[in-house]
């Protein structure tokens, strides 16, 4: 789920940036540092939409670095248990398949794939129904439900299922081509 929230961070700025474009430099550094990171608490920071406030800088003794408390608004993405997501399959193996929904990695084990889909090894490993109408392979788009999340300080990993109503392949590249 996406959220648009305020966050705060102390930015450390090198003295060489002190000059007429200090503020721009600070914001550029903030974006470079923050965007794409993941915190266990808020999830993935997708984008910074604005800087709300930059506080007074504090010069560190000895180094000359300055810390600025920066308050900024950003879009974060955090997966939840029970959430339905659309994801792109990245890898298929005998144990199940991996998929990505933006920055989030999701693993769907073969027990959570419908029973009528069987693993087919070969050049392009895939899961296929007995009649061959539905095929899950690399680059397939699937709709899945998250049934578990493991949130570390810097990483979120999810387990999904497609063994439920209205879940499964939503766009099969094999069928389209």
């Amino acid at each position: 789920m996406f959220f648009h929230i305020f966050l705060e961070r102390n930015m450390l700025l090198h003295p060489r940036h002190f000059g007429p474009h200090l503020r721009d430099k600070l914001i550029a550094k903030l974006m470079k540092d923050i965007e794409g990171t993941c915190s266990g608490r808020h999830g993935f920071v997708v984008a910074i939409t604005g800087v709300e406030d930059i506080g007074k800088g504090l010069i560190r003794e000895g180094t000359g670095f300055v810390t600025f408390p920066v308050k900024y608004k950003c879009v974060v993405f955090r997966p939840f248990k029970g959430e339905i997501l659309e994801a792109v399959v990245t890898m298929v193996n005998k144990m199940g398949f991996f998929a990505e929904a933006g920055p989030v990695q999701i693993f769907v084990s073969n027990h959570l794939i419908p029973d009528d889909m069987e693993f087919q090894s070969g050049d392009v490993p895939n899961y296929t129904t007995s009649d061959g109408s539905v095929k899950i392979q690399k680059e397939s788009e699937v709709r899945l439900k998250i049934i578990g999340t493991r949130v570390d300080a810097t990483e979120i990993f999810c387990i999904g299922t497609i063994k439920d109503d209205f879940l499964g392949v939503i766009n099969d590249p094999g069928a389209a081509s």
Binding site: M95, F157, I159, K163
Partner: peptide
């Protein structure tokens, strides 16, 4: 009954170490 929403567990038959599906990324 179908253990539908349960997290899959894996066992190493050699050393008996258990893993869960959450570790899948490291195990592959």
């Amino acid at each position: 009954l179908d253990s539908r929403n349960t997290i899959q567990q894996y066992i190493c038959p050699n050393c008996g170490k258990r893993y869960s599906a959450f570790d899948a990324l490291q195990l592959v």
